[in-house]
């Protein structure tokens, strides 16, 4: 059962590989970066041990790749953007050595300002939009879960999140 689910996904992946590469070439503006990413999707699929009951297997492949892109972005934004730096607390010390890869002071300041702007922009949103956004983004609830929790429709949830994103995007420009 588990084996079947896994290999079906890999079959689908092989079938769609060229489509995925075309799509991620557009996203990454680079064919070779897209090749790498699509290879990572494969690695990820071979590590899937659950046999999830997938609604849209093709959509899943694209979403997996898009999430890997986000993960890379997260990797690039480390450093000043760590909680520790934001809260001005201690640095991590390994033995006697500080962990390397600290960003430049200018970068730290710029990143903090950007983060402060985002945090303050969240406060501009109306309370219900804030609530929806928080539940989805920070508490990890899916759109249907947020909808059921607040007793609103799924499309209302999507509208709140869209409104929040548009506002944040305008502020963080």
């Amino acid at each position: 059962m588990e084996q079947e689910g896994r290999s079906a996904l890999i079959e689908l992946y092989l079938e769609r590989r060229a489509d995925l590469i075309r799509f991620f070439t557009l996203r990454l503006r680079s064919a070779s970066a897209a090749e790498d990413l699509v290879q990572d999707i494969y690695v990820r699929l071979s590590g899937v041990t659950d046999t999830p009951d997938i609604q849209n297997p093709v959509g899943y492949l694209y979403r997996l790749g898009s999430n890997l892109m986000l993960d890379r972005l997260r990797g690039e934004r480390r450093g000043a953007f760590r909680d520790g730096a934001w809260l001005d607390t201690q640095r991590t010390v390994m033995g006697a050595q500080e962990v390397a890869d600290e960003p430049s002071a200018e970068q730290v300041v710029a990143d903090r300002q950007r983060l402060a702007a985002l945090v303050s922009a969240l406060g501009d949103l109306n309370p219900q939009t804030q609530r929806v956004f928080r539940m989805h983004k920070f508490e990890g609830l899916t759109h249907p879960q947020v909808a059921a929790t607040l007793g609103i429709s799924r499309s209302a949830v999507e509208k709140h999140i869209m409104a929040a994103l548009k506002h944040l995007a305008a502020v963080a420009r």
Binding site: L70, D111, V119, L122, A169
Partner: peptide, 18 residues
């Protein structure tokens, strides 16, 4: 995408603020 990721830099701070 970049602001989506940036928001994760301080989830506690942001959640508290919200």
């Amino acid at each position: 995408e970049s602001l989506w990721v940036d928001l994760e830099a301080a989830p506690q701070v942001i959640a508290h603020r919200l």
